[in-house]
């Protein structure tokens, strides 16, 4: 069974149809990059996968959970599906350690000592062990984003979603975040990422999907897709070097 199964998703904002029948299947351990211009529907698609956006037709199954708007079932799904946002969205009133420990403790009743060990472990994975007691405001953007990744990892998700996670970062801070993501990918995490980092998509993602006008316009193994675009839209997009 695929880790993520998306079938015929349609989504409208008012009269504007942003997803016009998108289907996609991702196997466990696969890394899939979603690229495309602004407004092509790629972020909306990603946000549909953990229920942050609703859709009008189609179905989504993630990590064995069928997506519904039933709050209890949605929470069960979200325990298995992590998401990292462009704007980090750490909780500013909590320390890094508290940010990470909060959700395992309140959603899975993980005891304090165990939650702390877990937090230290995931912080080490993103290379920020020494920041356990810092507040988010005292970290750089790159460090905050790595903490956000650690916070998601502490829930021990089966699937991770990344929504343009380096778009708000300076070039020199982008690298440290991508490095963490690459490590995760190599560790076998199932990942879907919306990104403008073409180089990262080409080298790390098993598969890349090019979205255009609310549809999957072209998709295939990343290296092939970038080397031989089959449609003029993708060819132009690749030539323009992202945006």
């Amino acid at each position: 069974m695929p880790a993520v199964l998306i079938e015929g998703i349609h989504k409208r904002f008012g009269s504007l149809e942003v997803l016009k029948g998108v289907s996609l299947s991702v196997d466990a351990g696969q890394v899939v990059a979603i690229i495309g211009r602004s407004g092509s529907g790629k972020s909306t698609l990603l946000r549909c996968i953990n229920g942050l956006e609703t859709f009008h037709a189609g179905k989504i199954e993630v990590a064995g959970h069928m997506l519904t708007q039933d709050p209890t079932k949605l929470r069960e799904l979200r325990k298995d599906v992590g998401i990292v946002f462009q704007s980090y969205n750490l909780f500013p009133h909590l320390t890094v350690g508290q940010n990470i420990m909060l959700s395992p403790r309140i959603t899975k009743n993980v005891p304090q000592a165990q939650a702390m060990a877990l937090a230290k472990d995931v912080l080490a994975q993103v290379g920020l062990s020494e920041k356990f007691d810092s507040y988010p405001d005292n970290l750089s953007g790159g460090q905050q984003q790595r903490v956000a990744i650690a916070r998601s990892l502490a829930m021990q998700p089966k699937v991770m979603l990344f929504d343009e996670v380096t778009s708000a970062l300076d070039p020199e801070l982008t690298g440290e975040v991508l490095l963490v993501m690459e490590k995760l990918a190599k560790g076998g995490m199932t990942m879907l990422l919306v990104t403008h980092e073409m180089n990262f998509a080409r080298t790390v993602a098993d598969r890349t999907i090019f979205m255009h006008q609310g549809l999957i316009w072209e998709s295939g193994p990343s290296k092939e897709l970038f080397a031989n675009p089959q449609t003029p839209e993708l060819a132009n997009f690749v030539k323009a070097g992202a945006h």
Partner: peptide, 20 residues
């Protein structure tokens, strides 16, 4: 975005109010 981050971490509405 704080609501979204909290909901994405499987918190209930009450937990989101209380902790976030």
């Amino acid at each position: 975005q704080q609501w979204e981050a909290s909901a994405s971490l499987a918190h209930t509405t009450a937990q989101t109010y209380r902790h976030v």
